[in-house]
């Protein structure tokens, strides 16, 4: 969604409630996506976000078909069907990961293909591409308003609850599953719960950055933070900071320059990643060399 900017961003924030809601929604998503994204990265499951977002798209398209063509009234917003599909997709992945023990990553393309095929089928049945499909593909944070705010708050609370009460278990399972098993932790139960929350976060991210850009919101800030973080908590903190900068910067730039918000948020994330890479390459490494001249041969 592109907006015509007549006033400055700050002034518009006070004037338009939709912009305030977009910022609040964005800030909450910007907080929870790298938080759960960190655990996804540690478990080397970075592709799960992409897979689930494509499977959610199947839910969205079926929802659009049911609502627009069939006249279904039980569900009024296709995003709720996307959430259900995201959870179903996550369960499919877990089942397939158990089925192909030594080739666990096979589960991703299978579920992603199924999701994409179903999406293509139902998009055509629902009358082909239109603006709402475009919004779901590339995100439309400025138009979501307060529609999903309560669902996002509930999901964020669920994730925080999980992390506050089961921090140790979540960390040890992510870093060292074999050792967690030895400690007597019920790995299956934790994986189920964390995948469930992940599926919810992915489907909700669709509203902010869209199906095609969900993974970037979850993974890129973490990828950048990993390169400069000193400890686990410090790294997650930095990832959240990067993510929030991209959300605020993305909203502001997309408003001022009249460009797509989802794409701007993701491009800022990529820009931060690039800056971090350069900073590490030219500044941090140089400083380390200066600190340890005696180690040089």
């Amino acid at each position: 969604m592109i907006l015509a900017a007549n006033e400055s961003f700050i002034f518009a924030l006070f004037q338009y409630s939709f912009l305030r809601y977009a910022l609040i929604t964005g800030l909450i998503m910007g907080f929870i996506t790298p938080l759960i994204g960190s655990f996804v990265v540690i478990r080397r499951l970075s592709f799960i976000a992409d897979t689930l977002s494509h499977f959610s798209l199947a839910g969205l398209s079926i929802g659009l078909y049911l609502i627009n063509i069939i006249g279904f009234t039980l569900i009024t917003d296709p995003l709720y069907l996307a959430m259900i599909f995201s959870i179903i997709g996550a369960m499919f992945i877990e089942i397939l990961r158990g089925y192909y023990q030594n080739y666990k990553e096979i589960s991703m393309p299978i579920v992603m293909s199924l999701g994409t095929a179903l999406s293509a089928l139902f998009i055509s049945l629902a009358g082909g591409f239109n603006s709402s499909i475009y919004n779901y593909l590339f995100g439309s944070i400025l138009t979501v308003g307060n529609r999903y705010l309560w669902v996002i708050i509930i999901t964020a609370t669920l994730l925080l609850f999980l992390l506050v009460f089961y921090y140790k278990e979540m960390v040890i399972i992510s870093f060292d599953e074999a050792y967690a098993k030895l400690l007597g932790i019920n790995i299956g139960r934790f994986q189920f719960v964390s995948t469930f929350v992940l599926a919810l976060v992915v489907s909700l991210s669709i509203a902010t950055v869209g199906v095609l850009l969900v993974a970037s919101l979850m993974i890129i800030p973490v990828a950048a933070a990993m390169k400069v973080g000193k400890s686990f908590k410090n790294t997650i903190g930095i990832a959240i900071l990067f993510s929030e900068i991209s959300i605020i910067g993305g909203l502001w730039l997309s408003y001022e320059l009249r460009i797509a918000s989802g794409a701007t948020i993701v491009l800022i994330n990529i820009f931060i990643l690039l800056l971090v890479g350069l900073f590490k390459r030219f500044f941090l490494n140089k400083r380390l060399k200066k600190q340890q001249p005696e180690l040089e041969i």
Binding site: F175, K230, S231
Partner: peptide, 20 residues
């Protein structure tokens, strides 16, 4: 090999989550 390296974590943090 089972341990997922590369993601930053300190010795203290590993010990904290391993302590039951």
């Amino acid at each position: 090999d089972d341990f997922n390296y590369e993601f930053p974590i300190t010795v203290n943090e590993i010990l904290q989550v391993s302590r039951y």
